[in-house]
Amino acid sequence: MENTAQPARTAPQHFRYYDLVMAAFVTILLLSNLIGASKPSYVTLPLIGQWSFGAGVLFFPVSYIVGDILTEVYGYARARRVIWTGFAALLFMAFMAWVVVQLPPAAGWPGQDAYEFVFGNSWRIVLASMVAFWAGEFANSYVLAKMKIWTAGRHLWMRTIGSTVVGQGLDSLIFYPLAFWGLAGWPVELLWQVVLSQWAIKTAWEALLTPVTYAAVGALKRAEQVDLYDTETDFSPFARTRG
């Protein structure tokens, strides 16, 4: 099939909503990692019984949807900048949590144990979260940008779901084994059940919210007057983003 994708057009130097989309991405990323990443929950399914999943799955996939919107509207290079911004925010959050937990509590304050339980994540969880986020988000953005070229900008639903299958698959496969393998309360069967649940639920979220993605992408493209194709983009995660 002949590739009819348009060449990359020169984008304006300043976008009206790019910073707001970046802020939404980083906010969702931090809150989903801070609040829901380490708590397993469950649902009761017919014929199966209790099926476990990580509580963060209810909100974390929204960051991937925002990432899809970023790549589709603003291109891979600007999505790369946002991913690195999110990575830096995660790093600072981990550092701040460690410092605050280590500070001695004031005499008579009863919340230190609970505070350590909630915010005192081990180095394993911090490392796993950052590695999984980095690999998953870059894979998601790369696949979506490449598929946009291959499909000549058609079938947005195929691109968003396809990139999520890859990106969220990597994220779940990296995070849970790296963070919880061998720990008490995380038998191997539960670990892989949560990995598969995360992957399936995140992908299902992407599919269910496809109409929202279409509406957001369409509105932003009209407002920004831009529709970028990454035909000449350097896809290295470490390349410098211009503009």
Rank of each mutant, 00 (worst) to 15 (best):
I83N: 04
F87G: 00
A89P: 07
L91C: 11
L91E: 00
M93R: 09
A94T: 07
A94V: 09
F95R: 00
M96S: 13
L103K: 10
G108H: 04
G111I: 06
Q112R: 14
F119Q: 05
G120F: 01
N121L: 14
R124F: 02
V126R: 01
L127K: 01
F133G: 05
W134D: 00
G136F: 04
A139R: 02
A145N: 04
K148Q: 12
I149P: 01
T151G: 02
A152R: 07
G153K: 05
G153P: 00
H155D: 13
L156H: 06
W157D: 12
M158F: 15
M158L: 15
T160G: 03
I161V: 15
T164L: 05
V166M: 11
G167P: 11
G169Y: 03
S172E: 10
S172Q: 06
F175H: 06
L178P: 01
L178S: 05
F180C: 04
G185S: 02
W186V: 09
W186L: 09
P187H: 09
P187S: 11
V188H: 12
L190M: 14
W192I: 06
Q193P: 06
V194P: 07
L196V: 14
W199M: 10
W199S: 02
A200C: 13
A200Y: 03
I201T: 08
T203K: 04
T203N: 15
W205R: 01
L209I: 03
P211Q: 04
Y214R: 08
A216Q: 05
V217D: 06
G218R: 13
A219C: 02
A219K: 15
L220I: 08
A223D: 08
